[in-house]
Deep mutational scan, measured.
Amino acid sequence: DTLHVTQDGKHIELRGLSEEEIKLVEELLRRGRKVEEALKIIEELRK
């Protein structure tokens, strides 16, 4: 699936995420994380 995010005035499209990963990214962003940080966390969880 694809998640569309706008952060720091930039539109970012995150592709290839599972539904659970999207929920996790959304939660991390709500808690003030940056998109880059959220993606690093997803990458770690995929290992």
Rank of each mutant, 00 (worst) to 15 (best):
D1Q: 03
D1E: 07
D1Y: 00
T2S: 14
T2L: 04
L3V: 15
H4M: 04
H4Y: 00
V5S: 04
T6N: 12
T6F: 07
T6M: 13
T6H: 12
T6G: 06
T6Y: 04
Q7C: 05
D8A: 03
D8W: 00
D8V: 02
G9Q: 03
K10H: 10
K10G: 03
K10C: 12
K10F: 09
H11W: 08
I12F: 08
I12M: 04
E13P: 00
E13D: 13
L14V: 15
L14Y: 01
R15L: 14
G16H: 13
G16C: 10
L17S: 01
L17P: 01
L17I: 04
L17G: 01
S18M: 09
S18I: 05
S18F: 11
E19R: 05
E19D: 14
E19K: 11
E20W: 08
E20D: 13
E20V: 12
E21I: 03
E21N: 02
E21T: 03
I22M: 10
I22G: 08
I22R: 09
K23G: 13
K23R: 13
K23Q: 11
L24T: 13
L24W: 11
L24K: 08
L24R: 08
L24D: 04
L24N: 06
L24G: 04
V25R: 00
V25K: 01
E26T: 14
E26Y: 07
E26V: 15
E27A: 09
E27G: 08
E27T: 10
L28E: 10
L28M: 13
L28W: 09
L28P: 00
L29T: 03
L29F: 04
L29H: 06
R30K: 13
R30P: 03
R30H: 12
R30G: 10
R31P: 05
R31S: 14
G32D: 08
R33P: 03
R33H: 14
R33T: 15
K34T: 11
K34M: 12
V35Y: 03
E36R: 05
E36F: 08
E36C: 13
E36W: 07
E36S: 11
E36T: 09
E37A: 11
E37G: 06
E37N: 07
E37F: 06
E37I: 10
L39D: 01
L39P: 00
L39R: 05
L39E: 06
L39C: 04
K40M: 14
K40S: 12
I41C: 05
I41E: 11
I42Y: 01
I42G: 00
I42A: 03
I42H: 00
E43R: 04
E43M: 05
E43G: 04
E44I: 09
E44L: 09
R46N: 07
R46P: 02
R46Q: 09
K47L: 13
K47V: 15
K47G: 11
K47D: 10
